[in-house]
Design a binder for these strands. Structure first.
Length: 546
DNA sequence: GCCGTTTTCGGCCCGACTGTTTTCAGTCG
């Protein structure tokens, strides 16, 4: 049975080949479907079995037929015909930055170039000299791009938790240098996607050149690719691309909306605007010559008759239709977090580490923190926090601040003595000893949280579904967040659909740049989680939620 | 190839930047 990821990749291949063949709109149609399939929480086969393929955004008659063919045979005749027409390497030319479908097609049809290696040979043989549209500079650019593409084997997207600290440093540097009034990271970073292709940073500034200079001087910046009057593109030492854009304050909201995306979301918003006789671009919303909105995102959406939409929901999955009807339900946010149910102290923690943890929890105004005192590691070995250290933590409990003793136990079936005494709550996790999914619903002492499950291992989907089903039965929450051991936003959405609450790790022991809490929160928000959907969130006593 | 509270056909986001141009095409986001 082919996986959803493989199906999405297949449709992307079709899109590339259609691009090379010069098709105008079909490539985007196939890419849209590929994106939709990537964000499904269910196997295509299950959706197909229910006859609901057409409910996937971007799937119409023709693509439904191709999905059915793919599920039945693992092949798509249409793709095979395209592959017969276009040499395999020609589509690879699209991967080279600066080359698009037009160039790839021309190289192939006019010069017989059928791949990156042949392109390089053609350049060296001087066969590109005199080709219209390719001067010496362009040829040199293409040549180095081919070399670079070989070296990096395609620019992979970075996990958001990797991009987070560097994004924070860039933002802080721009703010502290006093060259920018407003600084925001837009793009998929702001939408909280699991991976980011680049960082889009928007600033308002009276002096674009100085803002660019401040950014370029950062040690993280390896090379500047281009600099115009309003935009600079640079590559960081870790390979991440960063675009810094300077915009007018009156346009900041429109620019933020525009560059936050997603593409699918913006297409829907723009189409809506057009139908209403309005025009939306990164400078603002206008009716004819009259400018209607632009300074804030709220007024941009309002001008289109829409409630403001949280960035994490802007994926073209029905959020625009919902925002037409009125304000969207509030998503869980940082200030809703009441504590952490599951903190691991490092093996050799001493009293100082405990104090730091508790101090951090109090500083954030948390009402509780759960410290894992004993349990099993992933490879099944028992571990125990030193008793004096744990006792010191528990002693810090007060009526307004509770310290829980947490035991982390491994996968079912529950064994005699599985639930230790003197423990406030259990966290259940898969381990090498018991990697399997629990089947016994008569758990003598159900866990509060199921943690360390994630799609980081191959073929993990079945296991993750099993753990979520178990959590649903016993009323446990599941841990969401960055890294292979936690659930991403797609799985978090699935968990919510199954009626399971989420547990958000808060990174209490991390530094100010620790991505754990903001990224986990973003994943929960992408899943549409509200306060009631998060086990360690709630409305503070005496505080009224807006 | 998809899509529709002004459409089942005629649209499909749009502006910056670059290079090679003498007015623009291609690429990118």
């Amino acid at each position: 049975m082919p996986s959803n990821a493989e199906a999405a990749e297949t449709f992307r291949t079709i899109a590339d080949l259609l691009d090379v063949l010069g098709e105008r709109f079909k490539p985007e149609a196939y890419r849209r479907v590929a994106r939709s399939i990537d964000s499904l929480t269910e196997d295509l086969a299950a959706i197909a079995a229910r006859g609901e393929l057409r409910s996937i955004p971007g799937v119409g008659d023709a693509i439904e037929e191709k999905i059915r063919e793919y599920l039945a045979s693992g092949r798509i005749g249409y793709l095979e015909r395209l592959q017969h027409d276009v040499p395999a390497g020609v589509a690879d030319l699209l991967r080279i930055p600066g080359l698009g479908p037009k160039s790839a097609r021309r190289f192939w049809t006019e010069l017989g170039i059928e791949g990156p290696a042949e392109l390089l040979a053609a350049i060296d043989a001087g066969r590109l000299n005199g080709v219209k549209g390719f001067g010496a500079k362009k040829i040199a650019q293409v040549r180095s791009a081919v070399d670079a593409a070989r070296a990096t084997a395609g620019t992979a997207r970075a996990p958001i938790e990797v991009a987070y600290p560097v994004a924070m440093r860039i933002v802080r540097a721009l703010r502290e240098a006093g060259v920018a009034d407003r600084v925001e990271v837009a793009g998929s970073f702001r939408r909280g996607r699991e991976t980011v292709g680049d960082l889009d940073i928007l600033v308002t500034s009276h002096n674009a050149t100085r803002a660019f200079d401040v950014f370029t001087a950062l040690p993280e910046v390896r090379e500047v690719r281009l600099r115009g009057g309003t935009k600079e593109t640079a590559i960081l030492t870790n390979g991440l691309q960063v675009d810094v854009r300077v915009v007018e304050p009156a346009s900041f909201g429109a620019a933020l909306q525009y560059f936050t995306g997603s593409k699918d979301h913006n297409v829907i918003v723009r189409t809506l605007a057009k139908d209403a006789g309005l025009r939306v671009n990164e400078y603002g919303v206008s009716r004819g010559e009259e400018r209607v909105a632009g300074a804030t995102e709220e007024e941009v959406y309002a001008a289109l008759g829409l409630a403001w939409i949280p960035p994490e929901l802007r994926e073209g999955r029905g959020e625009v239709e919902a925002a037409r009807k009125g304000p969207l339900p509030p998503l869980v946010q940082d200030r809703d977090l009441r504590g952490d149910l599951h903190v691991h102290l490092p093996d050799a923690s001493g009293a100082g580490e405990v104090d730091r943890l508790l101090g951090a929890a109090r500083h954030r105004g948390y009402a509780y923190v759960g410290v894992v005192g004993e349990g099993v590691t992933a490879d099944g070995k028992p571990f125990r926090l030193s008793e004096p250290v744990l006792a010191r933590a528990v002693k810090a409990s007060s009526p307004r601040f509770r310290v829980f003793r947490v035991a982390e136990v491994d996968g079912l079936p529950p064994e005699e003595g599985d639930a230790p005494s003197g423990v406030d709550l259990l966290v259940r996790r898969p381990t090498a000893r018991h990697p399997g999914v629990p089947t016994d619903t008569e758990d003598p002492r159900p866990p509060a949280v199921v943690a360390h499950i994630g799609a980081g291992t191959p073929d993990a989907g079945t296991a993750v579904r099993g753990w979520i089903a178990y959590a649903a039965k016993v009323g446990a929450a599941v841990e969401v967040g960055p890294g292979p051991d936690r659930l991403d936003s797609t799985w978090a959405r699935y968990a919510r659909e199954q009626g399971v609450r989420l547990a958000i790790p808060t990174g209490l022991l991390g530094s100010g740049e620790d991505p754990t809490c903001p990224v986990s929160l973003a994943f929960a928000r992408r899943a549409g989680a509200q306060v009631a959907d998060v086990a360690n969130a709630g409305v503070a006593a005496g505080a009224k939620r807006k």
